[in-house]
Simulated scan of single mutants.
Amino acid sequence: MPPSAPLILHATAVAVAGRGLLIRGASGSGKSGLALEMMARGAQLVSDDRVIVSDRDDGLWLSAPAPLRGLIEARGLGLLGATPCDPAPLVAVLDLDTLETERLPHRRETMLQGRRIPLLHNTAHPYFPAALVQYLRGERKE
């Protein structure tokens, strides 16, 4: 089956060690704020506000629309410059609108462009951005 046409999603994406995380949620849910927290811990900005999801033979890839490349919104400060990273392969989707209730949650998946992608839910812990950076460095262990 040929790859699907690229999608442009209202989302934010970051990468750690070349592994991309797509952060989705309602407007004002904290996508950019979480990305900034993760960037302070070593993540790189892929794209803020709009993310291109491209279907390639080797999986889904995240990139920024040209006008948004290297820009992130910080509420109360405006648009900030960030060193943009190259497109990154998508390894997980984070849904900020769904609160994680399990201490050790079962693996979840979501479908995107006809592919199964690990799905993470939001937690209300202050270490969440650091935990996401670590997840992207080495994935979750059983």
Rank of each mutant, 00 (worst) to 15 (best):
P2R: 01
P3D: 02
P3S: 05
P6T: 11
L7Q: 15
H10C: 14
T12N: 02
T12H: 00
T12R: 00
A13S: 07
V14S: 00
V14F: 00
A15D: 07
G18C: 07
G18S: 08
R19P: 02
G20Y: 00
G20C: 04
L21I: 02
A26I: 00
S27G: 03
G28P: 03
G28C: 08
G33C: 03
G33E: 09
L34N: 05
A35H: 03
A35Q: 04
A35T: 05
L36P: 04
L36N: 04
E37Q: 14
M38K: 12
M38Q: 05
A40G: 09
A40L: 12
R41V: 10
A43F: 00
Q44K: 13
Q44D: 15
L45R: 10
S47V: 12
S47K: 06
S47N: 12
V53P: 00
V53Y: 01
S54N: 09
D57V: 12
D58H: 06
G59W: 04
L60T: 00
L62D: 02
A64F: 11
A64C: 15
L68A: 07
G70T: 10
L71P: 01
I72W: 01
I72M: 08
E73H: 11
A74C: 15
G76Q: 04
L77F: 10
G78T: 01
G81F: 03
G81S: 14
A82W: 07
C85L: 04
A88P: 01
V91I: 06
A92W: 02
A92T: 03
V93E: 03
V93T: 00
L94T: 00
L94M: 04
D95V: 09
D95C: 12
D95L: 06
T98N: 08
T98Y: 06
L99Q: 13
T101Q: 14
R103C: 10
L104Y: 08
P105Q: 06
H106W: 10
R107N: 10
R108D: 01
R108F: 00
E109Y: 07
T110E: 14
M111E: 15
M111A: 13
G114N: 11
R115P: 06
R115L: 13
R115M: 04
I117G: 08
P118D: 06
L119K: 04
L120T: 02
N122T: 04
H125R: 13
Y127D: 15
A130Y: 05
L132P: 01
L136Q: 10
L136R: 01
R137I: 13
G138P: 04
E139H: 14
E139R: 15
R140P: 03
R140A: 14
